[in-house]
């Protein structure tokens, strides 16, 4: 196969970027999209040009490092697939492919295709955990978790934190990520004591960094793990409920 890549090159966070065109020959359909970049980078190094920076690590679709807008779609054309798991057999011979970094105000570009996603860590810090210091746990089977709850929590917990949902959203909103993280814990019996506080703290932190959700649903379509929009509805329900619950708890405390 032969493809023509149009890649966003930007030397640093404060410098202007631009698209650069790179033709690549002898592309195998069995190559992954990142392997195509490996091959291109080898060519660039040979020619004395600085290789393209891109985040990647596990190349198994689980670490969530890879992050490319491919022809305007987060992670490219294949549904439920991270960039590293996308293979060239999904493109036609002679294809013209545009590759950009995640586009979102909360994810500033570091260099070329690498962006800073630290805002996600801040959301987790704000409450994306169950307070269970090491040592105090009782026997695991004393906590019964209905299979349906465990399965639903796992569906949410499958999120790899790549940020495709934000990149795909016209508003740069992080509702899908945040709701997946909240509902993973809020659906489980272990998550109940902190349920209301968690949703308020995490949503408030999210709003500090990201845009607002206007129900486009682009996030779900872009998610490499097929996380459902339903989690956003569940988060919103919990958020509203929490406003009342919190008030009562606050009243009890004072």
């Amino acid at each position: 196969m032969h493809v023509t890549l149009e890649v966003w090159r930007q030397p640093g966070p404060d410098t202007a970027g631009r698209f650069v065109t790179y033709p690549v020959d002898d592309v195998s359909p069995d190559m992954s999209f990142l392997e195509l970049f490996d091959v291109l980078n080898e060519q660039l190094i040979k020619a004395g040009d600085e290789p393209i920076a891109f985040d990647h690590d596990c190349r198994e679709g689980i670490c969530g490092s890879c992050s490319m807008m491919i022809n305007g779609r987060a992670h490219g054309p294949e549904r439920g697939t991270a960039t590293c798991q996308l293979h060239m057999r999904k493109f036609s011979d002679g294809a013209h492919i545009t590759v950009e970094p995640w586009r979102a105000a909360a994810f500033p570009v570091i260099k070329d295709l690498c962006v800073d996603r630290a805002a996600f860590d801040r959301i987790i810090e704000a409450g994306g955990y169950i307070t269970a210091p090491t040592g105090g746990a009782r026997d695991a089977n004393e906590i019964l978790v209905p299979k349906s709850a465990a399965d639903a929590a796992m569906d949410a917990a499958a999120c790899i934190g790549c940020g495709a949902c934000v990149a795909a959203c016209p508003n740069g909103a992080a509702q899908l990520f945040t709701s997946a993280k909240i509902q993973h814990l809020n659906l489980l019996p272990q998550g109940q004591p902190e349920r209301w506080e968690r949703v308020i703290n995490m949503v408030d932190e999210m709003e500090r960094w990201f845009g607002s959700c206007t129900n486009h649903g682009e996030c779900e379509a872009a998610c490499p793990k097929d996380i459902s929009l339903d989690f956003i509805a569940l988060m919103n329900r919990d958020y509203v409920k929490a406003q009342f619950k919190q008030r009562r708890l606050a009243g009890q405390r004072r």
Binding site: A132, A137, D139, A140, I143, L144, A153, Q190
Partner: peptide, 22 residues
């Protein structure tokens, strides 16, 4: 043995039987 207890307490969604056991 303690690890499983700890992880369940943290909310790790291990696979479950229909009765809710691990």
């Amino acid at each position: 043995v303690n690890i499983i207890d700890q992880c369940v307490a943290q909310g790790v969604p291990f696979a479950r039987e229909y009765g809710g056991l691990l």
